[in-house]
Amino acid sequence: MSAWTKVGNTNDFASNMGGCVKVNNKQIAVFNFKKNDSWFAVQNECPHKQQMVLSRGIMGDLEGAPKVACPLHKHAFCLKTGKHLSDGDISDLTIYPIKVENDEVFLRVD
């Protein structure tokens, strides 16, 4: 199992918005909700049209579960499970373990 990689300090990431980081040559979208200080990491590529854009989507929730909507065609994905939530046959997202310690953000990417 790979080790935790530091991707920045918490104040590098704007609240209630996504940010993209590069780890092991992979693009990963990091999201944080200010309300309950929760953090999520998923692949940055939207599986619908294979573009690196998810970190630029609008965040929100579906019946309490955190989600992001792709800025290109508004396909929504659950940030907790990676599951595709909109209509159509589109694959789910890969999710990555993320943790915050002493205001530093860490990801584990295989």
Partner: peptide, 18 residues
């Protein structure tokens, strides 16, 4: 900024490849 839709979020028109 966190409220803004695809284009408004970066004050430009997002194209098919981002």
């Amino acid at each position: 900024p966190h409220l803004q839709d695809s284009n408004d979020a970066f004050l430009a028109n997002i194209q098919k490849n981002g």
